[in-house]
């Protein structure tokens, strides 16, 4: 029971990545695409934790930690490029 609910949650998160990616394809401006990339990063952190729990490997959480702390540097860089700050 618990396992089935958990797997459904993972499948929904995977579908969310797919939806965010459709926005990245459609997005009329580059800024829309960056927003989609930001959302994809956050969703993928959840997906990494889901994989760590499903595959029963505690050490995978460290990769999620790297994403949680570093991923926003790229987004901030693109934002500063857009507003002509770098």
């Amino acid at each position: 029971m618990v396992n089935i609910i958990y797997q459904i949650a993972g499948a929904i998160a995977l579908a969310a990545i797919l939806l965010a990616f459709i926005r990245m394809i459609k997005g009329p401006t580059a800024a829309d695409r960056v927003v989609a990339l930001d959302a994809m990063t956050i969703i993928s952190i959840s997906l990494i934790i889901f994989l760590a729990a499903t595959l029963q490997r505690v050490i995978y959480i460290d990769i999620a930690l790297v994403y949680g702390l570093i991923s926003f540097v790229g987004i901030v860089a693109i934002a500063r490029y857009l507003e002509r700050g770098i």
Binding site: A9, A13, A16, L19, A20, K26, A39, S46
Partner: peptide, 12 residues
């Protein structure tokens, strides 16, 4: 996960 999905749907 439903919140994640709704967020992505809103993005779209």
């Amino acid at each position: 996960s439903i919140f994640l999905f709704l967020g992505a749907l809103g993005l779209l």
